[in-house]
Computed example of a mutant assay.
Amino acid sequence: MQSVTLAKSTPNYAISLESSKQNPRGLTMPSTDKVTPIRGNDLTLVDNKQAAQILQINEKTLTNWRSSGKSPKYVKVGRCIRYRLSDLTAWIEANSRNHTGEVA
């Protein structure tokens, strides 16, 4: 059985996986104490309404953009659509322009 521990450090988060020494079938498994650093924004998910508020657009616009492939990357959690804050930030940066004649 694995347990997941979320440890908060100064600017980053880390996930620590600890596996038991025996699996359900009784076989001995090696113990893994591996810490993988993950940026805090990668763990924060927002729903469609919150993402629309961050982007300062209508929820329906964001839904239409998602259908046409123009929206930021999203994650499906079951039936729910969620956006990572890091993906929203990256999408905003990718759509930044210096002047109106600049091509995407």
Rank of each mutant, 00 (worst) to 15 (best):
K34W: 07
K34D: 08
V35R: 15
V35Y: 12
V35Q: 14
T36D: 09
P37I: 13
I38G: 04
I38W: 09
R39P: 01
G40L: 07
G40R: 13
D42Y: 15
D42N: 15
D42W: 14
D42V: 08
L43F: 09
T44L: 06
T44Q: 05
D47A: 08
N48Q: 12
N48I: 11
K49C: 02
Q50P: 00
A51Y: 04
A52V: 07
A52W: 13
Q53H: 08
I54E: 00
L55A: 09
Q56L: 10
I57Q: 08
I57V: 15
I57Y: 08
N58R: 13
E59D: 10
E59C: 12
K60A: 09
K60W: 08
K60I: 12
T61N: 09
L62Q: 10
L62W: 11
T63C: 13
W65Y: 13
R66L: 04
S67F: 09
S67K: 15
S68P: 05
S68V: 13
S68E: 13
S68I: 15
G69M: 07
G69N: 09
K70R: 15
K70D: 10
K70E: 09
S71N: 15
P72F: 00
P72G: 01
Y74W: 12
Y74R: 05
Y74C: 06
Y74P: 01
V75P: 02
V75K: 12
K76D: 01
K76F: 03
K76M: 14
V77A: 12
V77Q: 14
G78D: 11
R79M: 04
C80L: 14
I81N: 05
I81M: 06
R82I: 04
Y83W: 12
Y83D: 03
S86Y: 03
S86R: 02
D87L: 01
D87G: 00
D87E: 10
D87H: 03
L88N: 00
L88K: 03
L88E: 01
T89A: 12
T89I: 12
T89R: 11
W91H: 04
I92S: 06
I92T: 11
E93P: 01
A94K: 01
A94D: 00
A94N: 03
N95I: 03
S96K: 15
